[in-house]
Simulated assay, not measured.
Amino acid sequence: MALRSLENAMPAVQERPRKIAKTAAAKPDVPPAGIDENLAPAAISAEASVEYVASADLQPLDDPEKKLQTLLEDLRSNDWLKLCDALNNVRRLVLHHSSLMTPILEKVMIATAKSMKNPRSAVCKTTLMASTDIFSSLGHTLHLDFAQKDGSFDQLLLQLLLKASQDKKFVCEEAEKALREMASCLPPVPLMKKLQSYIKHSNLRVRAKAAIAMACCVAKMEMEVMVEHGLEGILVMATELLNDRLPEARESARAMVREVHRAFLESKDGKDGDEEQPSESSQAWQDFCFSNLRPALAPSVAKIPLQ
């Protein structure tokens, strides 16, 4: 019997046609409607477009009266570039035309405190620079109204302490600079009274920044002013900060204790006429600490000036 051919024995397997990948036709680059492809692209607005000018480089305004007419309106602008320009005009006015700014200074400070809440870093930094210039030029004229708990200065002070407590380094540094200028230029006793509520703030960083500013105030005070204000109150206030969680607050507290010690010894010498022996002065200081502080705290506080 003849064998069948193998080719006839196995059924032929038909190959499935391969799919050919469809390639999309390349679209020609067509510029969007209304844009001329022959023109260079417009510059992108960015934070870097704002120039941070040092106070010494700010020039007087050509027509300050005219700028003053629209200043408050410009400070309320939603255009952040326009707002930065208005803040720089505030700086020029307080530095070179301070007499014109005095009548509207309170309103400007309220607008400045509001601008400090702006999420744009450029606006925030320019606002902080404006605050520094306000303190340096007009700090001695500021009236710290204690009856008004939410006045223009109170709003500005809170925002400065909050910004100085931020994680953004350049914002924090600029806010600290403004706080130093504030402590340097404002009367120390009224400012210290304003700061007292913040050394008990729930935010430990705010407490530390307030303590640093308060230590600057105490360091500025003459012996007579400290005695009139009350050495006991300053000592108690400093003692409350000695156990704070942040080292900045603790070091500021120790600095205040040293200043109280200095004023205490000077006042003793002035009253007695004759200079006391070191042992007598040391004993008088310890007695002062024990008479105003809890017995558990007095010994360690009395030793701080000797460290």
Rank of each mutant, 00 (worst) to 15 (best):
E174R: 07
K67I: 01
A213T: 14
K27C: 06
E106F: 03
A298L: 06
M214S: 15
N89C: 08
S197D: 04
L93F: 10
M1C: 05
S184Y: 07
A296V: 08
A130W: 01
A164P: 01
L81R: 00
L306R: 13
L83F: 01
M109R: 04
N292M: 08
G273N: 10
L72I: 05
M10P: 00
K117S: 15
A219T: 08
S152N: 12
V108P: 01
P299K: 02
R254E: 15
L186F: 13
K268E: 07
K107F: 03
A296K: 12
N203M: 10
R76L: 14
D57K: 09
N8Q: 13
R180F: 07
E222Q: 05
A255F: 05
S136N: 10
S49C: 09
G139C: 09
L297D: 13
V123N: 02
R76A: 10
P28D: 13
D85I: 08
K114G: 00
S197A: 14
E228R: 14
N243C: 12
L39H: 10
A42H: 13
A298H: 04
L3P: 15
Q196S: 14
K209I: 00
D274L: 11
S98C: 08
L156W: 02
S77A: 07
H261W: 11
E51P: 08
L61R: 12
L128N: 13
L241F: 04
D79R: 08
K107E: 15
D272A: 13
L105D: 04
L158V: 00
P41G: 12
I199T: 12
R254W: 06
A46G: 10
H229L: 12
D167A: 12
L100Y: 12
D269W: 11
D272M: 14
M192W: 02
K220G: 10
M182E: 01
I104Y: 04
T127P: 10
R245C: 10
L144S: 05
L83N: 01
A147S: 09
K271C: 03
C289K: 02
K19L: 08
P28A: 14
V50S: 15
Q286G: 04
R120G: 09
L293R: 06
R16N: 11
Q155I: 01
L6T: 07
